[in-house]
């Protein structure tokens, strides 16, 4: 799997050398922008929806899911604000990660460690998002489950300790990647220029990382509650999804 990814990246790299599809400046700028708007914004929204499971239980979570699905043109919102940006940001991000010659061994400065972590968490988040989307949104798309059953699917999954642990890793990776990416976004677009501005914004972003991770884990724990357990026959469906 990793080998194929590296080979793919190499092909992308040589393709870029021969005839660039897009000027590197614009493609990198687009990558940076999409990471915050819309992907970062959606990520925060996703956290708030999940957090309803912790705050108001199954009822709160279901009403938040219903609210999202009642939005006009929801398919196009998903397509243009989530799936396409996710595809671009993910694939181009893998290419960026492939290009770096990580050197934390010789330069163990905090910013350099975060540079490497940004790339590691990016790859982890990429894998996690594919897995998570397959189990949830994709199953809805092929008609295996409905939006109302998503809470039950999550319950089935996170009551398994291994899946719970993997989800915690995925959530922490995604939260770090987003918050540290927000810090880098502010540098890359010339919002935080001087060392003091960059230091203060890093405190804010790392604080946000902790808050988001904790809130996500609280939501995840809430899904373990028995109220999310589905009594109907969808248990079988979930079994097939999981296997």
């Amino acid at each position: 799997m990793m080998f194929t990814v590296i080979e793919f990246m190499k092909t992308l790299h040589t393709l870029k050398g021969e005839r660039p599809l897009m000027n590197g400046y614009y493609s990198r700028k687009l990558h940076s922008l999409l990471g915050i708007i819309p992907l970062g914004a959606f990520f925060v929204e996703h956290l708030l929806t999940n957090y309803q499971a912790f705050e108001r239980g199954k009822e709160g979570f279901d009403s938040a899911v219903n609210f999202l699905n009642s939005m006009p043109l929801v398919f196009f919102l998903e397509l243009f604000l989530i799936w396409l940006p996710l595809l671009y940001h993910g694939v181009y991000g893998l290419y960026i990660a492939y290009q770096a010659k990580n050197n934390v061994g010789h330069y163990n400065y905090s910013r350099n460690i975060r540079f490497t972590l940004q790339r590691i968490t990016g790859v982890l988040t990429f894998v996690f998002v594919i897995w998570h989307m397959y189990d949830t949104r994709f199953q809805v798309a092929i008609g295996q489950i409905t939006h109302e059953q998503l809470g039950g699917v999550m319950h089935e999954m996170v009551t398994n300790p291994l899946i719970f642990a993997l989800y915690v890793i995925g959530i922490i990776s995604a939260s770090f990647h987003f918050t540290n990416g927000l810090w880098a976004f502010m540098v890359s677009w010339g919002i935080t220029v001087g060392p003091r501005a960059q230091r203060i914004s890093s405190y804010i972003c790392m604080g946000l990382f902790v808050i988001m991770s904790v809130m996500f884990i609280m939501a995840l724990t809430a899904f373990r509650g028995s109220e999310f357990q589905e009594v109907s026959a969808i248990g079988e469906v979930i079994q097939t999804v999981l296997s």
């Binding site: 590197g24 400046y25 050197n103 400065y109 910013r111 350099n112 540079f115 490497t116 940004q118 890359s188």
Partner: peptide, 8 residues
């Protein structure tokens, strides 16, 4: 665009 903010 090549800068990745490692700040080394």
């Amino acid at each position: 665009e090549g800068c990745g903010n490692s700040q080394n």
